[in-house]
Design a protein around this nucleic acid. Structure first.
Lengths: 185, 185
DNA sequence: ACTTGCAGTGCAACTAGTTGCATAGCTAGG
DNA sequence: CCTAGCTATGCAACTAGTTGCACTGCAAGT
């Protein structure tokens, strides 16, 4: 289970509220681990119970009070141990792959259309990552420590998106009924 | 939820027992959707309740009796509808990415070592897929129908593995403490 | 004036998936 | 002879994650 540990990494970088964490899981780290805010709050409560994190109540004016969580020594220990613990390669899960595989049992043209849609989404994501990289890591060769590690994960996102886009292009080319002369009005 | 639909695709291709399905989910389709046998049996029971599949009890000698499931007309309808229903891009989840991101809070050299291990696993998988492709799909240009779709999913696996391996190489190069002269005895 | 959206936390009920166990007979290897 | 592994199905108890709802109060747009 990596959500707990993803949260520990986030908190080790910077103390945050559940709200902030939930938003961050929609963004940077979220490329490799998502969580809804409900899930985040639930897990934070458990982690506090474990003594991995501690909360500070912060009163605010004009907006709701908040609880800022920080990682404890125990949490740091757990994180280091988890990082050291070898893990198995996890299986990729893809609805779209299942649909492609089953295209003959539905409408292959519609599947091609959906693949096209996904291709566009992933192309946007790729652009977003590349823009991020240019802006935040203009000189990768000079990176060290946790900035280097952040960059590496971003690179992973880039690699993955590229792989998917290449694949989608292959699928579209194979599934798309070539526009025939009759398609012209 | 794609497990049900992945099972429908499998059964549409060929009637099978829960046991066979579970094994198949360790293999071909399993590259994009895994399930333990317990999960498969549970879902099969629900699907039979829905009328999507029907079971035939087959007595055997020397080995346990089995229940062969086949897809029903209702199941085919559901499958076609699901394939037509657009879905959102699902988030990739990767423990390893979280570990890389948090490498500074553990032992970066150990993380590099783990990435190396995963690289080896994925390289093996890639070889396995490529061998499969050569053996089962020697002439991709001639493929049509569900053989084509099977091939496309295999191509997806290949693309994905390649993307990961590239990324792992980048990570290893960046994290690995270069062997210094002192490392020589 | 009214709606939308943001900041902020959380509960309740659900679905999906995992882990551990049980059972039973056959086959193959040490 | 004994152990390990395959075929075959399934229950029980658990953990993880999703969906829907609730509450407050401010700011900004229509």
């Amino acid at each position: 289970m990596a959500l707990e540990h993803a949260i520990l990494v986030s908190l080790a970088e910077r103390a945050s509220t559940g709200y902030d964490l939930a938003r961050r899981f929609d963004k940077s780290i979220g490329r490799f681990w998502t969580a809804t805010h409900q899930q985040v709050y639930k897990v934070l409560a458990r982690m506090e119970g474990n003594g991995w994190i501690s909360a500070t109540h912060v009163a605010q004016e004009g907006r709701p009070d908040k609880k800022v969580y920080d990682i404890t020594a125990l949490g740091r220990g757990e994180l280091a141990q988890w990082i050291a613990r070898p893990a198995e390669a996890e299986a990729a899960r893809s609805d779209l792959a299942v649909k492609i595989r089953g295209a003959s049992f539905g409408d292959p043209a519609a599947v091609a259309e959906e693949v096209r849609r996904h291709r566009a989404t992933h192309a946007d994501r790729l652009d977003f990552y590349l823009a991020n990289e240019k802006r935040e890591f203009p000189d990768p060769a000079a990176l060290t420590g946790h900035r280097l590690h952040q960059w590496l994960v971003l690179r992973g996102g880039i690699s993955l998106e590229r792989g998917m886009i290449d694949w989608f292009d292959e699928v579209i080319a194979a599934l798309a009924p070539r526009p025939t002369p009759e398609d012209r009005p």
